Amino acid sequence: MSGEEDSTYWEQFRRGDQQAFSAIYFAHYNSLYYYGLKICGNTDTVKDTIHELFFRLWNNRENAGDVKSVRFYLLKALKRDLVRRLDRDKKRITLHALSAEVDIEFSPEDLLVQTEADDAQKKLFADLLNTLPKRQKEALYLKYYEDLSNDEIAEMMSMNYQSVANLLQRGLKTLRDNIKMWLLASFLYHYYA
C-alpha cells in the first residue's frame, strides 16, 4: 500500500469506515508481526498486542490525529505496547533497558537477498548481522526492512537524527569489514587447502 493510499484509508478510518480500517490492518499486519517478534519472540504476545492495538485504535478513532506515515505510527505504537506489556508481565528486562535496546535477531529467511545466494551464504550474512550491537541491528532493521526514514527511526528509538545516521554508518561499515575478513579467510583457506 502506498503512502498516499495509507493516508486516504486513515482519513476514512477516522470517519468510521470499517473497510478502510480493515485495509490498514491487512496492509500492515505482517510488518507489525515480524517486528514484534524481533522485540519479544513470543508469537502469542505479539498477536495479542497487535489485536489490542487495533481494537484500541477502532474504539478511539474519533480522537485519532493526522499521521504522516501510518506504518511508522503503527510500528511505534506496537513497540510501546509491547514494552509496556513485557514490563507489566515481568517476562523480560526492565522497561528502561528494553526501550533503550531492542535485540533484533536476523535469520536467513529475513534476508531479502536479490541474488541467488545459497543457504550457507544467507546464514553467514545473518550471522554477521547478529554480531552487531543491539542498537545498530535495530536501526538497520527499521531502515532496510521497514523502510523508515532516519527521522522516523530517531523518534522510534528515542535518539536524535545524527545518532541514527552514525548507528547506520557504523553498522554498515562493520558489516563491510566483516564480509571482507570472511572473504579473505575463505580465499586463504581454499588457496592453502
Rank of each mutant, 00 (worst) to 15 (best):
I153V: 13
L142Y: 07
M157I: 13
K47A: 13
D119S: 13
E5I: 15
T49C: 15
V113C: 00
S31V: 06
V102I: 14
L148T: 07
E52P: 03
M157W: 05
Q18V: 06
C40D: 08
R56K: 10
R80T: 06
L32P: 01
Y144G: 08
C40P: 02
D48F: 04
E62A: 13
P108Y: 02
K47V: 12
S163V: 11
A97H: 14
L32I: 04
S107F: 09
L32H: 04
T94W: 06
G36N: 02
E62Q: 12
S163F: 06
A139W: 04
E138R: 05
L148V: 07
M159Y: 06
S2N: 12
L86D: 01
F187P: 09
Q18R: 11
Q12H: 12
L78H: 09
R135N: 07
E4G: 11
L98K: 14
P108W: 01
D127E: 12
E52C: 11
M156Q: 12
L112T: 03
V70C: 12
A20S: 12
E138M: 06
T94P: 09
V83G: 01
A185F: 10
D6R: 08
F21Q: 06
D48I: 03
K79Y: 04
Y34P: 01
N150E: 15
M156K: 09
K123E: 01
K180F: 07
E155T: 08
F13Q: 01
Q12V: 04
L75E: 02
Y29V: 03
R85E: 03
G36P: 01
F13C: 03
K180G: 06
L57E: 06
A193R: 06
E105P: 00
M181F: 11
F55C: 12
L112Y: 00
V164D: 01
V67A: 11
F55R: 13
A139M: 09
D6L: 10
E146F: 02
D81S: 15
N59L: 13
L148Y: 04
Y161S: 07
R92P: 01
I24D: 00
R135E: 05
K122F: 00
A27S: 14
K68W: 14
M1G: 08
L184K: 15
M157K: 13
L184C: 08
G41T: 09
L82F: 08
L175N: 05
